[in-house]
């Protein structure tokens, strides 16, 4: 078990370490100015010295991300489940959802701020919108791609619409639902960051903007690292729930033994 983990994690870990070493060496050999490109050790030192204020900003961004993601996914799942059983409405709305995915949702933020002011609300709305589309589409696809044999079995047995949904379509759609959730999670961290560029006094996005004005490249790198970590943590949290919930998958390879 441990060995398999090592084989999995080992190579990328070594690659990242090598990259960091090369980076460090280049910065010191060519004597690159700190405001142009700080070395990895500079970035780590800055993160350690500054951790208290960073923690506050990180917390603010995390909260914004989670609230937006939560609302967006809840609405996304709900819309998919409501639209799915009504074919006419589904066919009418589905292309609209696909087209509206091409609207750069982030670009709606200035507009939303005119309507809803400078508070948290427009930012939450933007993140929710960004999450909504991938989740709705993935869930609707999953619901409509139910196994034909199982569907025939259920219908011949006289299952009602509700029974079909709860006993077959929903569990069958869980894997694609979760791939939608994972995409949305990545989007939501990014959107929270960008939302904080406009009119906030806290959050990693706001912090980044401040440091840019001061040419503190090292601190901007710290902010980027934190955003990446937030995304990775959120992704893995969802994957963890997915594995708990979809326990019947992943052991398929033992089928023929």
């Amino acid at each position: 078990m441990l060995r398999r983990k090592m084989v999995q994690v080992g190579p990328p870990l070594v690659a990242v370490l090598l990259l960091l070493i090369v980076w460090q060496v280049i910065v010191s050999v060519f004597d690159i100015e700190k405001w142009m490109l700080p070395s990895p050790s500079d970035i780590v030192r800055e993160a350690i010295n500054n951790w208290e204020s960073l923690l506050g900003h990180t917390w603010a961004t995390l909260k914004l991300t989670l609230v937006g993601f939560g609302i967006g996914s809840a609405i996304g799942l709900l819309v998919a489940m409501v639209l799915h059983p009504i074919p006419i409405i589904r066919r009418a709305v589905y292309p609209l959802i696909i087209i509206s995915q091409n609207v750069p949702t982030i670009a709606l933020l200035p507009l939303l701020m005119i309507w809803f002011g400078f508070g948290l609300l427009p930012k939450i709305i933007v993140i929710a919108l960004v999450c909504f589309f991938p989740i709705t589409i993935a869930t609707m696809d999953g619901l409509s791609r139910t196994d034909r044999m199982m569907l025939n079995y259920m219908r011949m047995a006289g299952a009602s619409r509700m029974q079909l949904f709860w006993k077959l379509e929903l569990p069958h759609a869980l894997p694609s639902m979760f791939s939608g959730l994972k995409i949305a999670a990545a989007y939501s961290v990014m959107s929270a960051l960008v939302a904080e560029w406009i009119g906030t006094d806290k959050g990693i996005g706001h912090y980044m903007l401040l440091q840019q004005a001061a040419y503190r490249t090292d601190r901007m790198f710290v902010a980027i690292v934190i955003v990446v970590l937030l995304g990775v943590i959120l992704f893995h949290a969802i994957q963890f729930i997915e594995r708990k919930l979809i326990h019947w998958q992943g052991q398929r390879s033992t089928d023929e033994e």
Binding site: M149, Y153, R155, M156, A157, A159, Q163, K167, L174, H247
Partner: peptide, 29 residues
Amino acid sequence: TGHVSYMPQQAALFPWRTIEDNVILGQEI
């Protein structure tokens, strides 16, 4: 629908149900 018990070509057992829960599905419906 709802007048026959049907066994399809492939077993079409529900992968998220245990065997006992698969077996009772007809009566559960």
